[in-house]
Design a protein around this nucleic acid. Structure first.
Length: 173
DNA sequence: GTCACCTTAGAAG
DNA sequence: CTTCTAAGGTGAC
């Protein structure tokens, strides 16, 4: 019954000074990025990766460079195509707004809610941020609570603090 | 169905 | 100032 019993998906590690991230690629591009330590099953690392398509390898090189810059708090110059198709319509709208926040800038949950035309869905925006499959490149860490307060971060508040700090953003908390 | 979540303006005490 | 309330989207159980 499965038209496509197995959609190709590749998980490749990215070594950084901050640890080993894992990037996941669908046939459409980068689909996920996980922080070091987050659910790292040894199998997923050891799993034989029969043949990584050249396309994916090329994306991965771009990802690695971009990640290095992002961690350093510098603007990312080039990104691989991002596959955000796993999200709902609402989430994708939120994520698209986040992608327009450049390095060193921030938004509040309220502002993001307004930008997607759902000013009352403030908390839902928080939910969408938490569901973001590609942190750093979809910069959910640049969304702060009202009055420049830190707000939350599912990947761990330490990361949020660190990333904002490297981008020269000061939190009022 | 119920609950927990990266929220926040406003009203009450 | 502190505490409480109400309003949303979504996945887990």
């Amino acid at each position: 019954m499965n038209m496509k019993s197995k959609t190709e998906f590749f998980q490749l590690p990215v070594e950084t000074p901050a640890g080993r991230f894992v990037a996941g690629y669908s046939e459409r591009g980068l689909a996920s990025l996980t922080f070091p330590d987050a659910t790292l099953r040894p199998e997923s690392m050891t799993q034989r990766i029969p043949a990584v398509p050249q396309q994916v390898e090329a994306w991965h090189r771009t990802t690695s460079q971009a990640l290095a810059r992002a961690l350093a708090g510098k603007p990312v110059e080039e990104l691989p195509p991002l596959d955000l198709s796993s999200g709902t319509d609402f989430q994708q709208r939120v994520w698209n707004v986040l992608r327009k926040i450049s390095c060193g800038e921030t938004r509040s949950y309220t502002e993001v809610a307004r930008e997607i035309g759902r000013p009352e869905a403030v908390r839902a925006v928080g939910g969408a941020c938490g569901a973001n499959p590609i942190p750093l490149f979809v910069p959910c860490h640049r969304v702060l609570a009202a009055n420049q307060k830190l707000g939350g971060f599912s990947g761990g508040l330490n990361w949020k603090r660190m990333l904002l700090g490297r981008e020269g953003i000061t939190i009022s908390e």
